[in-house]
Amino acid sequence: MVNPVLFWIIAAITVIPAFSLLFARKAVHVAMSIVLVMVGLAAAYITLGAPFLGMVQIVVYTGAVMMLFLFVLMLVGVDQREDLKETIKGQRWIGLFTAAGLGAFLVSVVGRVTVAVSDTPVQGDPDVVAVLLFEKYVLVIEVLGFLLITAAVGALVLTHTPRLKPRRTQLEVQRDRVLAGADPVNKPMPGVYARHNALDVPALDPEGQPIDHSVSRVLKIRNQTQEGVEFRAALEDPSRKEGDR
């Protein structure tokens, strides 16, 4: 027999969080509540003599499934709020009524049934379950293995974004750049000597001529640029000394 207190505790930590499915606005809150429900269920399993299943329940549901849900919620956007206003005519009331009716009906039917409880409770320990699984139900286990693999592959396929165009090689990227009129190599950096802030000084090409477009357009408009000529003159001035200006 089961300890009634334990039962009521389990009932409380499963049913109350479960209602968040109906009333919570944020999906994250719902997910966290369901984690609680799953833990409660695991406790129930253990109470009912299925300790292995209870452990598996915690590992699979709280550990894997619900985490997966949370990941998906992250992907989708945690803050997706749901408008609880019903759009389909009659859906809310008929749905509530049907679901409640189903629950009430099941409860009333089950409540009226009396089943003789076995005097020899079985204990679903890991070794017992393992023997059963890999002897009696080995074929089912194999099939389930297939199913899981298929599901995994299916999930990969479904979430995979196909590449619609062939990958562009570097050569193609470069060719397009040149065709568009860009410099064949990197743009020359402005400034030769750091006598100023260097950004306002045009670069010089190998012939010593200043390259105009190496200076930002904005500086030119503000008239904050330096003519390269001036520097060259200073450069070529023999009377020039270190530390002038």
Binding site: V15, L22, E86, G95, L102
Partner: peptide, 15 residues
Amino acid sequence: SILFAIGAAAVLLRR
């Protein structure tokens, strides 16, 4: 049974 009914209601009512 109660949990089942709650789950069913969630499927029907949540968008």
